[in-house]
């Protein structure tokens, strides 16, 4: 057991030494793997952030109704009753034009601008909370309300969020495809690196086999090499993503301050980071395994 551990430790040291004997090509390999992995990972984290925004916005679906500017108080109370009795509507909130103006002044800090207005440009509005959130029901409700008299403009607020959701779904699929393709690339890169190493060490492999080396003994250093190279590539991808997000956040903070918001991009979570590293190490190992198995078989056949 102890000698087994010592042997693995030795192979590990040997792997690090081999990475260092050709630092430039090792570095370039690791960089290529890092860049390849950072593309889908970056896409993933951006989608994740967009999803966060969408979740914050979506809440319960709402329908906003803006009334004609010359609707009377009587009409408003009649509409309120009719809306409250509607089968598809759970709750109705009336926002008078005065309230709307106040809210606008408070939330956006445009008091200076609105203060200079001669008269309130905002209409009365209803905010309607429908019962279900089935998009077909919501849309038919919207169309029905549009036909009511004095209803100037009816807007289904969740519509664009749903479009965003659909877009995110599309984006996730694109990222998945990208991830699969680049995973193949990573396996191919490792396969080729290991192939070159096997070719230069073919003599050593043949001699080792002649004096009693098992296949797993011969495979081991190559598998370690693939694993370590993949892991370093994964680490590089992680660094690329983390540094990029930090840079984006610095610039983003200037931008979002103008909109009086404190939105910032979320970094990779611990779980996501661990997944990235494990996955990259596994792909490196897999590339090495395929390469060394194929070439061992060739050497045995010879």
């Amino acid at each position: 057991m102890k000698s087994w551990l010592m042997h693995h430790l030795y192979v590990m040291q040997y792997t690090v030494r081999r990475l260092r004997t050709s630092p430039l090509s090792s570095l370039l390999n690791i960089l290529v793997i890092g860049v390849a992995l950072s593309l889908p990972t970056g896409g993933y984290i951006l989608l994740q952030n967009l999803q966060g925004v969408a979740d914050k916005l979506v809440g319960a679906p709402q329908i906003s109704v803006f009334l004609n500017m010359n609707s009377s108080q009587d009409e408003i109370s009649r509409f309120t009753k009719q809306l409250e009795q509607h089968a598809d509507i759970s709750r109705v909130e009336f926002v008078s034009r005065e309230q709307a103006l106040q809210q606008l002044q408070q939330t956006t800090g445009l008091a200076d601008v609105t203060g200079g207005l001669a008269q309130n440009p905002l209409p009365h509005a209803f905010i309607i909370y429908p019962k279900g959130n089935d998009i077909a029901v919501l849309e038919s409700l919207r169309d029905e309300l549009k036909a009511w008299p004095k209803f100037e403009h009816v807007q289904l607020d969740s519509a664009w969020v749903r479009k965003l959701e659909a877009l995110l779904k599309f984006g996730r699929l694109a990222v998945l495809i990208l991830a699969i393709l680049l995973s193949f690339a990573l396996v191919a890169i490792t396969f080729n690196t290991i192939r070159l190493q096997i070719l230069t060490r073919r003599e050593e492999i043949e001699v080792s086999k002649l004096i009693g080396a098992s296949n797993s003994f011969i495979r081991r250093p190559f598998l370690y090499f693939g694993l370590v190279q993949g892991l370093l590539g994964g680490t590089t991808a992680w660094l690329i993503i983390t540094i990029s997000l930090s840079l984006l956040n610095i610039n983003l903070s200037d931008l979002v301050q103008l909109y009086a918001s404190n939105f910032s991009l979320q970094h990779l979570s611990f779980g996501d980071s661990a997944t990235l590293l494990v996955f990259s190490a596994y792909l490196g190992w897999l590339g090495a395994f395929l390469s060394v198995s194929q070439h061992l078989w060739q050497i045995e056949g010879a």
Binding site: K2, S3, M6, Y10, S208, I211, G212
Partner: peptide
């Protein structure tokens, strides 16, 4: 002979023992 020219005499003779997993 089938010796390995990338390592010294000691390491050449060491190889079978490494393969067999002997204590260092």
């Amino acid at each position: 002979h089938k010796l390995l020219f990338d390592r010294n005499l000691f390491d050449n003779v060491m190889l079978p023992l490494q393969i067999a997993g002997f204590d260092h």
